[in-house]
Design a protein around this nucleic acid. Sequence first.
DNA 1: GCATTTTTTTATGTATACATTAAAAAAGAC
DNA 2: GTCTTTTTTAATGTATACATAAAAAAATGC
Lengths: 224, 224
Amino acid sequence: MAIAAKTKSSSQKAVDELRELIFSGELPAGSDHLETELAEMLGMSRTPVRDATLILASQGLLEVRPRKGVRILSLSAKDMHEIYEVLTELESLSAARAAEKNYSPEDLAALAKTVTDMDAALAREDRTSWAKADEAFHKELVRLGGNTRTAAIVENFNDQVRRARALTLKIRPMPHQSSKDHGALFDAISRGDAKAAHQIHWDHRDTARKLITGLLEQLGLRHF
Amino acid sequence: MAIAAKTKSSSQKAVDELRELIFSGELPAGSDHLETELAEMLGMSRTPVRDATLILASQGLLEVRPRKGVRILSLSAKDMHEIYEVLTELESLSAARAAEKNYSPEDLAALAKTVTDMDAALAREDRTSWAKADEAFHKELVRLGGNTRTAAIVENFNDQVRRARALTLKIRPMPHQSSKDHGALFDAISRGDAKAAHQIHWDHRDTARKLITGLLEQLGLRHF
DNA sequence: GCATTTTTTTATGTATACATTAAAAAAGAC
DNA sequence: GTCTTTTTTAATGTATACATAAAAAAATGC
């Protein structure tokens, strides 16, 4: 999304607010909303709302259906499978690329901090802080991989599964194994072991996918 | 891009026409165009043009720069590297997944046809037809991989490199090795050999990237 | 009662007018 | 001549009016 806007327009406000409403569940998955309804909700005319819905449609968060309403997209099990397949592949590639670059400890400081933050949150049994640090870990990992397009895809797909992750965060087991994986991955990257980095991360993401989809199934959710 | 429009609106026309102008080079990489200019060019008001530029910006084909003009995005060598890194990874994943599915010969008929078409075009030394069949091969390959999101990403990235490929098509060596690779990949998928399918395709894409970037360098092009 | 046709309503697509603001040009100061 | 400030111009953001067309409601026919 290459918009080089400098100030916050109504369109951008609409994007931000709609995103927030979607991620919080206030605009539930599967719900339909007319342009005029959203315009009233956001306190602006239809024009910037239309801009925003086009942008959010391109991000895969909603579907513009003329005369039937803008539908907030829900995810099926198949969607989850597809998203995680791509996430797993591209993040693992980033992990391998990061390891190949032989980063200095300084270069890896931000990644190290996220690992430390996750461990601290885990010790406190603070799931929310842990999730935040976890997200920062994955984002930094992909940045270290050095491909901005990979980073953009991963970020977008993480947005798409944001609700599912929030849903499962409270009920999943405490993420001890996840933290072990992160530590091991950090070590592999530090010592420049691309093959190990790729494998560790691939297994880590695969495990996470199974956990999340399993929990969603337990909750009896076909779409979310 | 989840627009469920049924009829062709001016906005959609604008998207289609601007795409064509970009791919043909009529709107050259690096050129800037005001909204009003594009609206006049396309014979419509600014409103649908604005819709179209938002959509094309999300496709990575242009950048909306308020007051400076809509810039048709050019690609640097780094861009090419990033795009091909993602394409290689995701297409190879698709090849492996396709092999795992143990498709019947019927299932693989469309893919087989693209291979046949490529061979026929190659025998005639018809580069244009070969390129068309090549594109169809890659598209069908990704479809057979079964992940619609992968297919969408791959299609979008192929759009982004479309001009570069067109530029190099006329000057590259006749693609004999490429056709061999396609045949070998088809065989690997047919016999369900995921590992081989992945490897063959990875090597194939890697070779293609080197060829294209090498030719662009020969042409002395830093951006295209 | 059901199917078809016609009319009405309404949501979106589009054009245009107006508001905002960034950039260019002009004026002033040294 | 250069730098700063002010004014003007024009490009984009936004609101609103109008056009179009899809959906809903009403009317008609059997």
